[in-house]
């Protein structure tokens, strides 16, 4: 549960931050909805990247101390 939860957090955080940046840029430049759209996808990509990195880190630390940091 811990690992899955952590990975979901990473993904959602990526999308959220991307969308937020897009929204801010849009309201600043008045280009709605283009930046929101672009940064939504960039955020999703960043989220996936984070999930990948988190998974790799979990795997590494699990390997290192055989079942330590899994709840992260």
């Amino acid at each position: 549960m811990g690992v899955a939860f952590r990975l979901v957090t990473e993904l959602v955080a990526g999308v959220f931050v991307g969308a937020a940046i897009g929204w801010v840029l849009d309201s600043w430049l008045g280009t709605r909805p283009w930046f929101l759209l672009v940064f939504f996808f960039i955020g999703a990509a960043a989220g996936i990247l984070n999930v990948y990195r988190a998974a790799r880190q979990i795997a590494a630390s699990t390997e290192r101390d055989a079942g330590g940091d899994q709840q992260g």
Partner: peptide
């Protein structure tokens, strides 16, 4: 680069959400 920047910017979100949500 934008993906990496966004990925970097998500750090405080995921860090805080993880603790709070748990």
């Amino acid at each position: 680069v934008p993906i990496e920047v966004v990925s970097y910017l998500t750090r405080p979100i995921s860090l805080s959400v993880r603790l709070f949500a748990n």
